[in-house]
Design a protein around this nucleic acid. Sequence first.
DNA 1: ATTAGCACTCTAAACAGGTGAGTGCTACTT
DNA 2: AAGTAGCACTCACCTGTTTAGAGTGCTAAT
Lengths: 337, 337
Amino acid sequence: MLDERRMAVLRAIVEDYVSTGEPVGSRGLVERHGLGVSPATIRNDMAVLEEAGLITQPHTSAGRIPTDAGYRLFVDQLATVKPLSSAERRAIQTLLDGPLDLDQIVSRAVRALAQLTHQVAVIQYPSLRVTRVRHIELIELAPARCLLVMITDAGRVEQRLIELPTPLGPEATAVLRARLNQVTAGPALEEAFDELDQLWAGFAEDVRPAVQAVVDGLKEMHRTGYQERLVLAGTSNLARAAADFRSFMPVLEAIEEQVVLLKLLTEMSSDTGHVAIRIGHETTQAGLEETSLVAAGYGPGRAVAHLGVLGPTRMDYPGSIAVVRAIALYLSRILAA
Amino acid sequence: MLDERRMAVLRAIVEDYVSTGEPVGSRGLVERHGLGVSPATIRNDMAVLEEAGLITQPHTSAGRIPTDAGYRLFVDQLATVKPLSSAERRAIQTLLDGPLDLDQIVSRAVRALAQLTHQVAVIQYPSLRVTRVRHIELIELAPARCLLVMITDAGRVEQRLIELPTPLGPEATAVLRARLNQVTAGPALEEAFDELDQLWAGFAEDVRPAVQAVVDGLKEMHRTGYQERLVLAGTSNLARAAADFRSFMPVLEAIEEQVVLLKLLTEMSSDTGHVAIRIGHETTQAGLEETSLVAAGYGPGRAVAHLGVLGPTRMDYPGSIAVVRAIALYLSRILAA
DNA sequence: ATTAGCACTCTAAACAGGTGAGTGCTACTT
DNA sequence: AAGTAGCACTCACCTGTTTAGAGTGCTAAT
């Protein structure tokens, strides 16, 4: 039923519609693509594709546009891999070259992603779950208030202000700092949790609550640390892409409500370099019915976070996929170093 | 020439236009506001105001709308202070209450600003120029690469990755760390610069370049630190406000180009709590011709940074001014503590 | 299975008239 | 001199109508 040519027709419709934004008709199709048949034949095929729910017409006398299902079939089976141009490759390379700390790397990568895809780009900060602690600093700011600073092996700095139930005092602070560094100098922070919870035992009665407060702060930091942070770029690309205001504002809102984006991202595949796609309704998010998300996991070894681009369902999937994958791999390589 | 009533007419026009978005005509004016004269009289006044360049008509048979100059006169002489509602006051108070580190304070403040004004809110991070150093941490990440972390008295953490010309070694690193903390424990970082530049003298010949590299990094950090960082919120308010796409995209772009915004902000008045306003063309920025900026300096004592809101020229100036001032003062008070 | 032909549908653009808000002007009033 | 009433005029906007064209679906022929 969905034979070779019909698929070719679907692919052609997707490609044309993506590039022009106009519903595509049977005549134009045969003209632009070298299908060796007449428009009438195409029309029959179109009727079949429409029956199958892959394309639709905005109104009776218009051409066809792909449905979400049509795009889905396209990306799953029809899209050909589009290798990066050497210019794109170079752009990524030079942008992410040189000694950079994590913030710099992420902010440059997100900008590259936005520029190369002409979409809204989003990168989730790598979770702290996998990284290792290089150093912990504990500083008294006020009698019962201190600042906990954690430096990880990726050169990332995480901070947290902690209110203490009782003052800790300079000596106890110094001791606690040393103990924290000692205990967390293991392979991964998580594995030190048990030992951390015993830490209070080595301290005088009156400062034990304060010690526990610091430990709790550290665990909390690990749990909700950077992993919840998103960095965005290319928001203005939305204006170019959106056809009208209604479809536009909810997207802006979703972007600002980072929660929604974060949820979407983390729900997606977590294999490093494997690109997952949500098309239109598949996002199951009110306001994002006409928006697609192309995302991939990244990180050293198993993926520790996600990155991707957000754009209209009518987007250049092959191109976006290529760029997203490339940046994910680059980033993974850099982080592994 | 511009007597009492004419000014009242201008004020009424601004207020009506801001609230309705429609050009306002003579009849409606006398109806809605209790001016005790007839529409014909108002029309004469309008003709004068138009002659003076304060109002204009979009087309012949339409009502009047204020020009940039009209808004300017309005905010300078006509606008009455609009005290914050108790709800608004409470919102700010609860939002900025409790023990918070700088990041939290700023991100909450910017959100409050956006919510209360229904505009795009922007806050510039306080410059490092005035703050004091509480602690400096120096950590070797690789033989010739180290991370410099600076913690200021506002509980702010600043980091920088530094490439060393030659390896420093653990002992020299420790010594340098101690020396840095010792030297910078003064009233303000800037005043320690001279001493910092002499620091290399106390080290062995072969690590002196590395020491200097670290010092340079520290100075660089001070120079370009957080002061260049902006935090934004309420971008989706733009969609509500903008009348059409053309006026809309350049604004989004300017927002993303933080440079432009930063330039605008720093050009404005620097007195703490004093609200400065740029209206439309006054921004002298391509793309922001229909955009106004309401900003104020904030910080302990002399202002160390700026915050403000960005919106269409047709905005509620008295309301925005009140909120901007309130948040600037609140923030200043918190930072001074 | 494919195609040519044709009638049909429906949108978008172009056009025309009517409506009304709002103005500017002039002559009149206080 | 300042304010007002009246009135003719302008022009965007709405509405209805027409037209052109793109595209379809169907049927009959290949």
